[in-house]
Amino acid sequence: MDGILLSIRDLRTYFYTEDGIVKAVDGVSFDLRRGETLGIVGESGSGKSVANLSIMRLIPEPPGRIVSGEIIFDGEDLLALTPREMRRIRGKRISMVFQDPMTSLNPFMRISRQLMELTQLHLGHTKRQAYAHAIEMLERVGIPDARMRVDSYPHAFSGGMRQRVMIAMALACEPELLIADEPTTALDVTIQAQILELIKRLKRETGMSVILITHDLGVVAGMADRIIVMYAGKIFEIAPTAKLFATPANPYTKGLLRSVPDPARDAGRELYQIPGLPPDVARLPPGCPFAPRCALAQERCRREFPPFVQIAPDHHSLCHFATEVYAESVREKEAKGASDLNPL
């Protein structure tokens, strides 16, 4: 299908540690369409970052290894490429923005050089072209006085401005896919709003696809077309954004949604909380990894690994009781809709 830019099939990325094998990503499959924004939500250890580092082939090896799977990008299996071939794709056709811009910017190099390097390498720009392009990119991401500031060092920029520089670098070669891993987590809310608006605008202008990784359901609600919820290295639920929020079919998704304080619902009440702790991925229980924390868990959940149930062609959930959970969400939604109509 030509609408699909990236297709991941049964990706498994394991880490071999003293504590045993950590199955950070364990059988993840999804497609990403051209121009689509896909949100990946999960808590620490859910495998959301490792999945995306695997796409970039940036897994430190050892201890990590992509054990199996396919990552088909525009018809080509990235896992079959040589490191040299991969370098031609990374930074040019797929690029990444990280949480902490300081870890990805070279503190000893002027911003201009860091930006020029990219386009000289990937686009064959001359020095003059690359310099002009660097200024243009900084202007595009909203850095004031770009012409004057292009020769500064990273430390001269604030956190929000550094994140803009990172985005300028990521977009310098007009990639087809941008992977943004918690791009706003280290920033204040007003700056977060600026950066999210920026990513939205640049996506509109370039038509690129975006994978947005975050722990904040609020961030993906306004940005993503579809959402993947990950837990313990597995996809727990995947659905279009509106469906996932309105009618989740997985107890974990429901728990996450309900544990975010909502003033209209929670005023004066105890917040819904998911009991227990995120799982130790090196020591997962035999059945459903969420079973120890799940209010609906039955004997079967502790024994058997759950199936990936199709609720609708574009909505899947990893749960023995996915259909029941979905039906309950639909009932709740209808009840809520009715109460919205008759405010008594």
């Binding site: 604030s158 600026q194 609020g218």
Partner: peptide
């Protein structure tokens, strides 16, 4: 501005509301 910058975990609100985006840094 501070309150409007907080993302709301509800796509119907997120897609319709107008956000006050502050220029610049503190």
């Amino acid at each position: 501005a501070l309150i409007s910058a907080v993302p709301v975990p509800d796509p119907t609100i997120e897609l319709t509301r107008r956000r006050i985006v502050l220029e610049g840094d503190v």
